[in-house]
């Protein structure tokens, strides 16, 4: 019987005695690569209860338990390291970028709100917000520096805001610079996501747009997982709270998760949203599968989705009024 082990291949006889052994050298990297190559092997597995350590002594691979375990430890460690470094695939990079983008959005909003609150004391009439305000502060600092050529000149001259001392001005300018650079970083990450999506998931990008596509990958965990999901799961990704509430109690089922941000869904009238969400989700899963398994761009997907959308719209021109009334009653009863 032939048995593959991490330290080599051995042939055993009927009684389990070792007849022949082809051992590997004690080179850690070589052993680790060999170990990884055995992961998907379906044949020549050690039989149930096979004592690898005893076999390693019998065939002379290791001389003592200490040596056996030392080598095993180094080999498993090296193999795990190789696997971990191979795990950072392009879709994992997109996930990191999406999460970084969410963090940046949150921070930018908080900081620019603070900036507008703070600078508002000195120039409340500016009417600026967000990045515009930050750029304005970086450029001028105090409103006294606004020259006659600037559109805000008259407002700045007649402002009821307090005088901005130079120490405060330096502080605010620095703060505004940080806010500006965050906005800059946001654009950079968005561009990165758009480019990477075109490379690794062109069909998903086509149907969902780069940001929604990237978010779907991020919530699924990887492009492979997204491709394996049924489209009903894709439809409610991001609505887990509503979904589990539905499964546990009698709450209504969610019609859409983050795919709600898809323009076809969020512009559709409410009575067809569920149907449209289902159609979009099914095309999204198809797109993810094409991207993961073949990678070729299929332009007919959008056409098919458009056709399906039109069909849904024309067959449901009006909200279903009668059903709504009769549907409302049992709902109340259920709530008891």
């Amino acid at each position: 019987m032939k048995i593959d082990t991490w330290f080599g291949t051995i042939e055993t006889g009927r009684a389990g005695e070792i007849q022949e052994a082809r051992l590997l050298s004690k080179d850690i990297r070589e052993l680790a690569l060999h170990s990884l190559s055995l992961r998907d092997s379906r044949s020549d597995l050690p039989p149930e209860g096979f004592d690898l350590k005893a076999a390693a002594f019998d065939c002379g691979f290791a001389e003592s338990p200490a040596e056996y375990y030392f080598l095993l430890h180094e080999v498993t460690l090296e193999a795990a390291k190789l696997q971990v470094s191979g795990a950072l695939t392009p879709d994992q990079r997109i996930i990191q970028a999406v999460e970084a983008l969410d963090d940046i959005n949150e921070t930018t909003n908080a900081l620019s709100e603070r900036l507008s609150e703070w600078y508002g004391g000195y120039f409340p009439e500016s009417g600026l917000g967000g990045e515009d305000l930050a750029l304005f502060i970086v450029k001028y600092g105090s409103r006294e520096n606004v020259g006659p050529e600037a559109p805000l000149y008259s407002k700045a001259r007649n402002s009821m805001g307090a005088k901005l001392e130079s120490a405060d001005e330096a502080l605010l300018k620095g703060f505004a610079e940080s806010v500006c650079s965050l906005y800059e970083r946001r654009r950079q990450i968005e561009a990165y996501i758009e480019n990477s999506m075109e490379l690794i998931a062109p069909n998903l990008k086509l149907i969902a747009g780069p940001m929604l596509g990237a978010r779907l990958i991020s919530l699924a965990g990887s492009l492979g997982k997204l491709a394996e999901f049924p489209s009903s799961t894709v439809q409610v990704i991001g609505a887990s709270k509503a979904l589990f509430k539905h499964l546990r109690s009698r709450a209504p089922s969610p019609k859409h998760g983050i795919i709600y941000s898809h323009p076809l869904i969020n512009t559709a009238p409410w009575w067809v949203r569920g149907k449209v969400a289902r159609a979009v989700a099914s095309k999204l899963s198809l797109a993810a599968r094409i991207d993961f398994y073949s990678g070729e761009k299929d332009l007919s997907l959008t056409e098919k989705l458009e056709a399906k959308f039109l069909q849904i719209r024309t067959s449901n021109p009006r909200p279903p009024q009668k059903r709504q009334e009769s549907g409302a009653k049992p709902k109340k009863k259920r709530r008891k």
Binding site: R39, Y69, H73, T76, L77, A80, Q83, V84
Partner: peptide, 12 residues
């Protein structure tokens, strides 16, 4: 695991 010799990590 790199600090503790009796842990053999397996990613599987």
């Amino acid at each position: 695991a790199s600090r503790r010799k009796n842990i053999h990590p397996i990613l599987a």
